[in-house]
Design a protein around this nucleic acid. Structure first.
Lengths: 198, 198
DNA sequence: CCCATAATGTATCGACTCGATACTATTTGC
DNA sequence: GCAAATAGTATCGAGTCGATACATTATGGG
């Protein structure tokens, strides 16, 4: 009873241990884990996704918790809030200069550096496997994938007016940088027919 | 500046996101993340490693924090403490029946189930890559690896007296089950010569 | 044998996370 | 308009976590 399914279990435990090591690092740094995760998200998300609500869904947390974290980040001068010009009940979040600079000290770099020591094909294969694992986990969990714009089913590489790209859901043009950012509206392209039945 | 090293960064962020999803699950369950991690460790560690101190090093936490978590687990009737017969200042930790049973509800199963949907070779490859990543991270961090007994440089498959195996460090016989458990004394076998120089 | 030192673990405190609940302020829809 | 939904905040209690201080038990000289 310990041969093949244990691979899956072992993989899960390894993910947990890696994350725990990063968390330990984060606790020693200027920011705590929750704040680092918010900072990272705001650095990677696009202009349709930089709100407290989107961050809440990304982190699978509650509104109140995220609100607290954002207050702390604002107090430290790393994040700036601006009222949304289009919606009076919404808020837009931006990294300050200080916030951008602080990302160079991200304790997650510990993991990234370790990953960079892996051989090229091993790194690529592991990244692919983990990506599939994340997709499967999110699907199983009912959450939103928060994928990169380029990989969305609504992404159109060619814009009508000559802009680089286009979003078929929000019906707006997209810059090159937009297309590489995380979007809360992301939906994966429907695969032909994979392991989708079970 | 965004092609190859970004793979490493992306892999690191994926690990973080997977761990966060599990943590969200854990917060909804009977135990919180710290308690689950302790419970998991105690279920997997061998009889030389079931102490608060070993758990502290495994989790890369502090003595006080772990002590708190253990008090909570004891209060919930999931963990039992016994004085170490060999050392008056040490304590041995054991899962209770309830604790063992509770592991069936481990929220980490969410990840394990998702992993089980991956194709066999993809799963194996990803697990291998993550294992190497964990080893590299720990080495870079100066911590102990807490590997499985069998994979230790002190592990001797053949015992002198006919017992299944033997530990060349602690000089004690090892059962089959021992050899599959996590040990705080674990040291990886010295590789011939890999990427060890840099 | 005794005392300094180290190691194992606990107790306590303050800062913070986190979920839950209640609340305000907008927006939407009928 | 006005009820209902949505975005966000405020507050509270339980619990994590590190830091510090402490008690107890080895360990290692002199």
């Amino acid at each position: 009873m310990s041969s093949p399914p244990d691979h899956a279990r072992h993989l899960a435990e390894t993910v947990e241990r890696l994350a725990r090591l990063v968390r330990a690092r984060e606790h020693e740094s200027a920011l705590n884990p929750a704040q680092w995760e918010a900072l990272r998200y705001l650095a990677r998300c696009n202009r349709f996704s930089n709100t407290p609500g989107a961050l809440t869904r990304y982190l699978a947390a509650t509104k109140g918790t995220v609100s607290q974290t954002l207050i702390a980040l604002e107090r430290k001068g790393l994040v700036r809030k601006e009222p949304d010009p289009a919606s009076g009940r919404s808020v837009r979040l931006f990294l300050t200069e200080t916030g951008e600079r602080l990302l160079a000290d991200d304790p997650l770099g510990l993991l990234a550096e370790a990953a960079a020591t892996l051989a090229g094909p091993m790194l690529a294969g592991t990244a692919t496997g983990l990506g599939m694992l994340l997709a499967a986990t999110i699907a199983r969990n009912g959450g939103r994938p928060f994928g990169v714009c380029r990989t969305c089913r609504f992404f159109r590489p060619e814009a009508p007016e000559g802009a680089p790209h286009f979003c078929g859901l929000l019906l707006v043009p997209l810059s090159e940088r937009d297309s590489l950012s995380i979007c809360q509206e992301h939906e994966p392209p429907q695969e032909p027919c994979e392991h989708e039945a079970a």
